[in-house]
């Protein structure tokens, strides 16, 4: 079957493999083959995504109310202009950014730490541990939210009972403007199963030879992690970063269920997308909601594009991205 990577290659050696062979330059045949493989997505995009996306862009220039679809009016850039003087939107954007600054690094670090732990040869029963860390993702959202409301209750929630057992004061997690973000972040950690799995897949594909070579060079645990593991899993780290970034900017479900969509307490959980949802389906300002969506879209797409630009400098491409 397939062969192992080149002998005794140091971490840097594989970064720039020799570019030889038929694939070394673009040609008609390569283009045709590439497009052929990508075609399923192109067809699906045209069939199922393009029209709805375009429609929402068009709707963002209207006063569309889904209950009164026939009374739709073109309002020019009015929806976009309205954003400049919408205090709720400003607050929602600030809340979302603040939350993202906690949650993105925290969940990436936690998922990676767990992946390293359940990948360690020092761990007995790794299969069981992997399954256990993945378990929460298999709980239906209706149930898991009810669970968390119970666990985070100020007087008889298990989290506070645990804190009390080690002498810490009780925290009103869900009703305090200060504690609600940490509470949601803790809830978010419960859903790291996918990220963990993806990191794990990355860790699995780091060739053991690299660690052996590093050991021979006298690298300790941290140096091996820093100079072998991190570069080698940087592609999946990059993936997780992009996905968690998109997910955080679209953060919605938990906040919606916990607060019945009101953004309690004090608007601290009125995230950008929850505000968008309210505009769309509670106030029926679908035109304005569409405009909000497209602004978020441009911001997140811009961030993603920037990350892709910087990727060349820190994301390892075993096959040499061309």
């Amino acid at each position: 079957m397939a062969t192992a990577p080149g002998p005794a290659a140091g971490p840097l050696a594989t970064v720039a493999p020799p570019r030889t062979g038929r694939f070394s330059g673009p040609n008609g045949r390569e283009t045709a083959t590439g497009i052929l493989f990508v075609a399923p997505w192109i067809i699906g995009f045209v069939a199922f995504s393009a029209l709805p996306m375009l429609a929402s862009l068009v709707l963002s220039f209207t006063d569309f109310d889904p209950r009164q679809a026939d009374e739709i009016r073109f309002v020019g850039a009015e929806n976009y202009a309205r954003m400049l003087s919408d205090p709720t939107l400003i607050k929602a954007s600030a809340v979302t950014l603040r939350f993202a600054l906690i949650v993105v690094p925290l969940s990436l670090a936690f998922a990676l730490a767990v992946a390293l732990m359940v990948n360690s040869t020092l761990l007995a029963g790794r299969n069981v541990f992997r399954t256990l860390f993945y378990l929460p993702l298999q709980i239906p959202i209706v149930a898991s939210t009810v669970v968390w409301i119970g666990v985070l209750n100020v007087s008889n929630g298990w989290l506070n009972l645990g804190l009390g057992a080690i002498g810490l004061p009780a925290v009103d997690w869900l009703n305090s403007t200060f504690w609600v973000h940490p509470a949601l972040a803790i809830m978010g950690l419960w859903g790291i199963g996918n990220m963990m799995l993806i990191f794990l897949a990355g860790l699995q594909s780091v060739p053991t030879e690299l660690y052996d070579a590093a050991r021979v060079d006298g690298a300790g645990v941290w140096a091996r992690f820093r100079h072998v593991t991190l570069p080698m899993i940087s592609p999946v780290l990059f993936y997780n970063l992009i996905i968690v970034l998109i997910a955080t900017f679209q953060y919605f479900t938990q906040a919606y269920v916990i607060t019945n969509g009101r953004g309690d307490p004090g608007g601290e959980t009125l995230f950008f997308n929850l505000n968008l949802f309210r505009e769309a389906f509670q106030f029926y300002n679908m035109g304005y909601a569409s405009a909000l969506a497209w602004v978020l879209f441009v911001v997140v797409l811009g961030l993603t594009a920037i990350l892709f630009r910087t990727a060349g400098s820190w994301v390892y491409q075993g096959s040499g991205e061309r």
Partner: peptide, 10 residues
Amino acid sequence: TKAELDAIEP
């Protein structure tokens, strides 16, 4: 209060 209600009956 809200928190007390949640504690006895979510």
